[in-house]
Amino acid sequence: MNLTITNGYNDLKSGSHSRLKHPVVGYERKSKSVCESIDNSSMNFNGSFTGKSDTAVKVYKDLGKGFWDKIGRSERFNKILKMFEERSVVSQALVALVVAGILRPITNLAMAGKNDREDSIYAASHAIASAVVGFVVSYIVMAPFDKAFRKLKENPKKYLTSENLAKTLGVPEIGKRKLEKSQAYKNISKMAQMIPDSIVMGIPKAMLTIALIPPVLKYVFGIEKKPKNAVKQDDTQVPKNNLESNNFIEQPKMENFSGGKH
């Protein structure tokens, strides 16, 4: 594979690159010097590769052959990664959907004893319903925010017009590629992405999720919680029952946990 160098000279000359790179790649040089106007013959660099530390580095001799390689090479996985980066809140709800909607019910049912079998089935259905409702609510609520974020990410110059911002973020100017190099930009972007869900809408969304679970359980799964026994409990029974009812499946807190929120 030969690389024919046709352009790029102007890119470097214009100063669009702030760093000089070491291309340890194969090539065939066919064009004239990059930065020839700057680097005349007096600029003599004879520094070859002057590596100091030669500790072993991993070479992927079996690249593309393993199971995980095949997953990594799939376009579907690439789309998932893109979603996790650009739609972090929905991705968070997706993880909840898998963990609380699949793994947890399976474990609950597997761990259920003879006495609490019925409760476990209810709890498993509850977990699935809350995970599904949580994901759907997150997806709907966050969709316009995610799209707005992608707009800003693709064209930051249009939206970020403050003169001081570039300085604050430690970049020479506001530009997509320049911002990608800024850790500060990465941090503030993640915060901006997740604030609407985590802080502003987190609690209302959790409440909405909780409110939607009973009808979803009833009409989608056909399951309804049986009324508790009206037997009067003595003092020693009360705290025990309360603690049991505080298990992480039936309490609003964990409904919320499995409903798209931490």
Binding site: M1, L3, I5, T6, N7, G8, Y9, D11, L12, H17, L20, K21, H22, P23, V25, Y27, R29, S31, S33, V34, C35, E36, D39, M43, F45, N46, G47, S48, Y60, L63, G64, D69, G72, R73, N78
Partner: peptide
Amino acid sequence: ANYIDKHKGEFLNNPDLQALINKYAEIN
């Protein structure tokens, strides 16, 4: 590595990278 291997064209046709390669060749 898998991504690069699968999408070699995207990398090797990058004019920036080519310019940098050229630069390296020039000084070395």
